[in-house]
């Protein structure tokens, strides 16, 4: 346990040192700028716009961090050979994998919390009262980032940093797309709004293999929609507690499985 904590803390400080602070400043700048301009544009929806944008930017900055640092957790250490001094010590290999992940998770939690604080500060003078839903939505962003980080961890275990970044991005995008596709094609979206080409695609989907593929993908991909509470915040609606609990459980289980697979892969690996 001590070793696990030491590695997690090491990874945590390691990532913190890589100028993550700048991204918080950049975030604050974006949010403040929009907050100043928003009134002009939105006819009374500036609180909503700043909230949506704030959450979107939170996700973006988190993703940037995960894609740049998370997707190279393992491969970078192996390539730079820094991992040798760790693994030569009396720790298990899974300590290293899980510790790296926990370090990343701690950074993400800190980042999301910090950005949420900035967002609340930006919203206050606009008359936006900080609501629980905003905190819940930020928690959702954190959970999403957690899942992406788990995917990135596995990817970084399988390939080089650049490839791992691409792979992670692809998987995350597919995860987003899967929800939209399914809703769209299962008729969740208004058919009247589909273009002819899209209607054809929907028909093809309902006919066969795409359908099966998507359903399969639903179990493999991170279905981040389960932890997406942004619509609720935007429209000042409450998030059902059950949805929150189930979403959280889903994200944790998914991430857990990914980390587990990453551990199994890393256990068999030659690092020299």
């Amino acid at each position: 346990m001590n070793a696990l904590r030491a590695i997690a803390v090491h990874c945590f400080t390691d990532i913190l040192r890589s100028r993550i602070l700048y991204s918080i400043v950049a975030y604050a700048a974006v949010v403040m700028l929009v907050a100043v301009l928003a009134g002009e544009w939105t006819l009374g929806e500036e609180v909503r716009l700043v909230t949506d944008l704030g959450l979107g930017a939170m996700l973006l900055f988190g993703l940037l961090l995960v894609l740049t640092r998370g997707a190279e957790t393992i491969s970078r250490e192996v390539e730079r050979k820094t991992v040798r001094v760790m693994l030569a010590r009396p720790i298990e290999r899974w300590h290293f994998v899980v510790g790296s992940y926990l370090g990343m998770a701690m950074v993400l939690l800190l980042l999301v919390a910090a950005l949420l604080a900035v967002l609340v500060v930006a919203l206050l003078p606009m008359g936006g009262s900080p609501s629980w839903t905003l905190a819940v939505a930020s928690w959702g962003v954190f959970l999403e980032l957690l899942m992406v980080a788990a995917v990135a961890l596995l990817a970084s275990n399988l390939s080089s940093p650049v490839l791992a970044t691409l792979l992670t991005l692809l998987v995350v995008f597919a995860g987003h797309l899967a929800t939209g596709l399914r809703a769209w094609m299962d008729g969740g979206a208004d058919i009247e709004h589909l273009s002819p080409a899209e209607r054809e695609l929907a028909a093809a989907y309902q006919a066969g293999p795409l359908n099966v593929g998507l359903r399969l993908g639903y179990y493999v991909l991170p279905i981040v929609a389960h932890v997406n509470f942004k619509t609720e915040v935007a429209n000042a609606l409450p998030v059902p507690v059950m949805r929150l609990i189930l979403g959280t459980a889903y994200a944790l289980v998914y991430s857990g499985i990914m980390v587990l697979v990453a551990t199994a892969v890393f256990r068999r690996r030659d690092v020299s």
Binding site: W41, T42, D52, L194, E198
Partner: peptide
């Protein structure tokens, strides 16, 4: 882009896309 396409490509940020459309 149709709205279905827009929301599918919104990366989970449908409200933000809606904000853009509103603006």
């Amino acid at each position: 882009a149709s709205p279905a396409m827009l929301s599918m490509l919104s990366f989970g940020l449908r409200p933000l896309v809606a904000d853009y459309l509103w603006i």
